[in-house]
Amino acid sequence: MAMSSGMAVFCRLTGRSLGAVLGHGRGKSLTARRWYITASSGNNVQFKLDERTAHSSLDLFKKETGVIYRMLGVDPSLVQDTPLRFRDWAVVLADTPIESGRHYWEITVKKSHEFRVGVADESTSRDECVGTNSTSWVFAFVQRKWFAMIMGKQVPVPLVGKPDRVGLLLDYEAGRLSLVDTQKNEVVHTIKTQFRSAVCPAFALWDGELLTHSGLEIPAGLQ
Results as ranks from 00 to 15, higher is better:
V67G: 05
V92T: 05
I68K: 15
T124I: 15
K110W: 06
I98N: 05
T96A: 04
Q80D: 11
S112Q: 05
G73P: 10
F115I: 10
P83K: 07
T82M: 02
V79A: 11
L84G: 00
V91G: 03
V117I: 15
K111P: 00
A94E: 03
F86A: 02
V119Q: 00
I68T: 14
P76L: 02
F115N: 08
H103R: 08
V79S: 09
Q80W: 05
V119C: 09
V67F: 06
V79I: 13
A94C: 12
K111W: 11
R116V: 10
K110C: 11
V74C: 10
V91M: 07
G73L: 10
I68N: 06
R116L: 10
T65R: 13
S112D: 06
P97F: 05
T124D: 12
Y69L: 07
L93K: 04
I98S: 07
S77A: 14
I98F: 03
T108F: 04
I98V: 15
W89K: 04
S100L: 03
L78A: 12
P97V: 01
V117N: 04
V109M: 11
I107A: 12
E106Q: 12
S77Q: 13
E122P: 00
K111H: 13
W89R: 08
P76T: 07
V74K: 14
L93Y: 06
H113C: 11
Y69A: 01
T124V: 15
R87D: 10
S100N: 12
S112C: 14
Q80K: 13
K110Y: 11
D95A: 09
P76W: 02
T65K: 11
M71C: 07
I107S: 08
V109D: 03
W89D: 11
T96L: 15
V74M: 10
D81F: 06
M71D: 13
Q80Y: 07
G73Q: 08
A94F: 01
R102G: 04
V119T: 06
S123A: 15
D75H: 12
G66D: 03
S125L: 11
G73W: 06
V117T: 12
S112T: 11
P97R: 10
A94L: 04
R70W: 09
V109Q: 09
E99S: 13
F115P: 04
F115R: 05
S125F: 11
I98W: 02
D121Q: 12
T96M: 15
H113F: 09
L93R: 02
K111I: 02
A90V: 01
